[in-house]
Design a protein around this nucleic acid. Structure first.
Lengths: 226, 226
DNA sequence: AGATGTGAAATACTTCACAGCA
DNA sequence: TGCTGTGAAGTATTTCACATCT
């Protein structure tokens, strides 16, 4: 009598992987694949099969011993947990190059997300249209958000104003934030903030390149498992 | 004789944080701050002070007991490890909205990265200029890359061709890849791939929103059947 | 046979707490 | 006194390995 397990105890790393699994399963389903083993899924996701099985067992057991998981069912189950299919209105704060790029990003509508509002502080932009959405002034957020409240916000503003915008968003009830601005945002602990910092990712790659060159002296084959 | 510690053993999570610290330190230096404590750095980075000290100790010790770390020196040290300051030519494969947004992204040049080439498969784009760079056809990669070899590549192409592009990049010697396309790239194990998947990040946030609502309904012991 | 689901062991990472230096 | 650097303890996550089911 447990339709689902204790979702509160799912480790953050597992949650990230669920999103990966979901993407892979969507692709497998589109390709007409009916079943997949933990090993197969693991290979696509770049993790171990034990890791996959442990993750999936957290949502409850629905694999078939001897054959694996039914792609459609597994995708459905993970999708439910991730909230795919529900109404997910997303607002974008900061309509610069990056914000505009997101407007036409296919993954947004494909994932069931719907842009509900655009905000900017530039008077030249406010009132104009971008991809069919009227750009509102960020100070108008409380009123504009009342009409069609966002549950997720994407911050693509300059770093300097990101914290201020985050505070405004929190105050109107937005709790999930995807932050592209290269600053650490501080909000009450019930907010969930995901940071996507291109500059930081490049630095991490740069580190690996530096290490690669340093290791060229000691020419050993260090194999990372996992 | 240990001017620096065993860099091979630095945990991946620490490496990510080094990039964060570096960003914060750059900002502090620009603001004229001379020294910073592990506690101060921790607050900006959103981690604990013990975590900061442990991380920094992996690069060797250079704090001053009683006062903290010298901002300029610490930034310099971390920058060395991350490879900041060296020549880091970056090419961008896929000059759509996202690729264009990256061209003007300040974090790129600020981090010491230099765009060395742009690639696209669209004949209408090839030969045109974007932000001062001529767009080359992706099939021309081997030749174009020879002139000014990239060490890092950013893939902002459609998902369907991302794996093909990744293979081409690998074959001309690029080992560090920042992938925006929503697919898992498979390359030999000496390649380092970082994925920035906006759709996946939104799914993770969506999960948290879903869980938040589920908890709100969990006031009663009512049994929901799925 | 072949693959899941999961205790138990191993490993990775974080935090405590304090000796030791400026 | 104040803050770093680090053993030791604690917590989180991964992997092993195998009983269990189809």
């Amino acid at each position: 009598m447990q339709p689902r397990k204790d979702l509160d105890r799912i480790p953050p790393v597992s949650i990230n992987r669920f999103a990966t699994y979901h993407r892979i399963l969507s692709w497998l389903e589109d390709s007409g694949v009916m079943t997949v083993s933990s090993e197969g899924l693991a290979e696509f996701a770049g993790v171990t099969s034990a890791n996959v099985r442990r993750d999936l067992s957290r949502l409850g057991a629905f694999g078939t011993r001897g054959s694996g998981y039914e792609v459609a069912i597994l995708r459905q189950k993970i999708g439910e947990s991730l909230g795919v299919g529900g109404d997910r209105p997303v607002c974008i704060a900061g309509v610069g190059n990056l914000g505009k790029a997101l407007l036409t990003y296919p993954g947004l509508s494909r994932g069931g997300f719907r842009i509900c509002a655009l905000y900017d502080a530039d008077p030249a932009k406010v009132g104009t249209d971008a991809a069919g959405h009227r750009i509102e002034h960020i100070d108008n957020l409380p009123e504009a958000n009342r009409k069609d409240p966002a549950v997720i916000a994407v911050i693509t503003s300059p770093a300097m104003v990101a914290q201020d915008i985050a505070g405004k968003l929190y105050s109107v009830g937005v709790r999930e934030i995807l932050n592209f601005a290269p600053v650490h945002l501080t909000l009450p602990s019930d907010a969930v903030i995901r940071n996507l910092d291109v500059g930081m990712e490049l630095l991490v790659l740069s580190f690996h390149e530096t290490r690669r060159n340093a290791n060229r002296n000691a020419n050993s084959n260090a194999n990372r498992s996992g």
